Simulated scan of single mutants.
Amino acid sequence: MTDAMLQKLDQLIAATKAASIPYESRWLDADGVGAMLCYSGRQVLETIACRPEFPKPLRVNGSGHPRWLASEVQRWADDERKRPTRISPVASNDDEAQAVSGRKKPGPRRKHQ
């Protein structure tokens, strides 16, 4: 067997072992959490994982890349779904739109002479 074949065999064995672990018991890295929540791993680290209510990660030996238990992330996502959302009211005219957005509607353009 060649080195490439052995490497591919190792990958297949690892994938088979991972598939036998129930999803809720798996430890996810930032990319895995991102896939679960439809975000990138970077967005997870920069905007989601820093929230105080988000599950605390496990770091092997106190350092290394953070890992989250899939069931804890799922529970957090379910709780987030139940929270009331903050949606701005739909404005019915330009004055209300300005009040909601805080921005003025651009005026008519002047022609340069």
Rank of each mutant, 00 (worst) to 15 (best):
E24N: 15
H65A: 09
T47R: 14
P108Y: 00
Q98V: 05
D95T: 06
A97G: 03
G102A: 01
Q113M: 02
K8V: 06
S20H: 13
P22I: 05
L9W: 11
R83I: 10
W68C: 04
Q113C: 05
G107N: 06
L12E: 14
R59P: 02
D3F: 09
M1Q: 03
T2Q: 06
Q43W: 03
A4S: 12
E46P: 01
S101Q: 02
V73H: 07
R67P: 00
P66A: 12
R67T: 02
R110Y: 08
R86K: 07
G41S: 02
P108H: 03
E24A: 15
L69T: 04
E53V: 06
T2H: 04
V33G: 03
P55D: 10
E96V: 02
I48A: 11
A97N: 06
G64N: 11
K104E: 09
L6H: 06
W76N: 05
K56H: 12
S71Y: 04
D3C: 04
V90P: 00
A97L: 12
S40C: 05
I13G: 01
E53A: 08
K56L: 05
D94I: 11
L9S: 09
A77I: 04
L58C: 12
A19F: 02
R51Q: 13
L37N: 07
D79H: 10
S71T: 12
V60C: 01
F54M: 06
K105I: 14
A15D: 15
D79I: 07
D78E: 15
